[in-house]
Simulated assay, not measured.
Amino acid sequence: MTIPEQRPVRIGLQLQPQHADYGKIRETAAQAEELGVDIIFNWDHFSPLTGDPDGLHFECWTMLGAWAESTSRVEIGALVTCNSYRNPELLADMARTVDHISDGRLILGIGAGWFERDYTEYGYEFGTAGRRLDDLAESLPRIEARLGKLNPPPTRRIPVLIGGGGEKKTLRLVARHADIWHGFGDAEVIERKAAILRGHCADIGRDPAEIELSTAVRSGPEEVGPKLRDLGVSLFTAHVSGPDHDLTLLRDWIAWRDTQNS
């Protein structure tokens, strides 16, 4: 199904904060901004997800505060913040603060959490996937309410990105709270889940066109770009990990974006 009115293509980079010292991470963020990337994400984990599990790694939100100062144009955010690790009111205040430091460039990416080692190593209760999703459902209105009470308020309505593909709970939360849905899987999976998301939007009377569709990309744009674009995806995020931070794939996607948006 071709979407008649498409959003402009945007390209993200998930700069995974593992297996590199911070100087290299900062250098890569600056290089990605110079190349013309639209958004730079990190992730919210406490140890590496690939390679040596005890390798170099840095924390998410302090890094976002640093990126708010060291970059000037790109939007920044976590792909995604784990709801379990911070009180929702505190997270709202952190987001508002980074929003101000960055002059309104923060995206509040959030999800229910899944990496058990994060929980056990840092003393959080892992529980069940269902309970973590219920916690996220309880937190999102609290975050929204706190953002409305802070002085000064955010510089803009901070966009909320929700990551995940659960059809009964996660996509319902996306329909109610998100500006961006970050899905996982190939085009067939995205197509099916986007249809389910449209159904949840219909249930609450929301226009699904208000929600930007986003996904990760691990191959070149000529291979997957046209099909995902026809499904309405407009935010494509490559990822890079230390120690080398090879930006070849990112360059290819930025070049493809420029042909699509011209």
Results as ranks from 00 to 15, higher is better:
1 M>K: 11
2 T>K: 13
12 G>T: 05
15 L>S: 05
21 D>P: 08
23 G>A: 14
25 I>M: 14
27 E>V: 06
27 E>S: 15
27 E>N: 13
31 Q>L: 13
33 E>M: 09
34 E>Q: 15
35 L>C: 04
35 L>P: 00
38 D>S: 11
38 D>Q: 09
39 I>T: 15
40 I>D: 03
41 F>A: 04
45 H>N: 07
50 T>E: 13
50 T>R: 12
52 D>P: 03
53 P>S: 10
53 P>M: 10
54 D>W: 00
54 D>T: 08
54 D>I: 01
55 G>F: 01
56 L>W: 04
58 F>Q: 13
59 E>S: 12
59 E>M: 07
59 E>L: 12
61 W>Y: 11
62 T>P: 14
72 S>F: 05
77 G>L: 04
77 G>T: 04
77 G>I: 05
78 A>K: 03
79 L>M: 15
80 V>S: 11
82 C>A: 13
84 S>H: 03
85 Y>I: 08
87 N>C: 07
88 P>A: 10
90 L>V: 15
90 L>I: 15
93 D>F: 06
94 M>I: 15
95 A>K: 14
96 R>T: 14
97 T>M: 12
97 T>A: 11
98 V>G: 08
99 D>S: 12
101 I>G: 04
104 G>K: 07
105 R>K: 09
108 L>G: 06
109 G>Y: 03
112 A>G: 01
112 A>K: 02
115 F>S: 02
117 R>K: 14
118 D>K: 06
125 E>H: 10
125 E>R: 08
127 G>M: 06
128 T>Q: 05
129 A>V: 12
131 R>F: 03
131 R>M: 07
133 L>A: 09
138 E>G: 13
140 L>Q: 08
141 P>Q: 11
142 R>I: 15
142 R>D: 05
143 I>C: 07
145 A>F: 07
147 L>Y: 12
148 G>Q: 14
156 R>A: 07
156 R>V: 12
158 I>A: 07
159 P>A: 12
161 L>V: 05
162 I>N: 06
164 G>Y: 02
164 G>S: 09
165 G>E: 02
168 K>V: 03
171 L>F: 01
172 R>I: 00
174 V>W: 02
174 V>D: 08
175 A>M: 02
177 H>E: 10
178 A>Y: 01
179 D>Y: 06
182 H>K: 06
182 H>S: 08
184 F>S: 13
185 G>H: 11
198 R>D: 15
202 A>V: 08
203 D>R: 12
203 D>G: 10
204 I>D: 07
214 S>Q: 05
217 V>C: 06
217 V>L: 11
219 S>C: 10
222 E>Q: 13
223 E>V: 13
225 G>F: 05
234 S>R: 01
235 L>K: 02
237 T>H: 02
238 A>K: 01
241 S>V: 15
242 G>I: 08
246 D>Y: 10
251 R>V: 11
252 D>G: 04
256 W>P: 04
262 S>H: 14
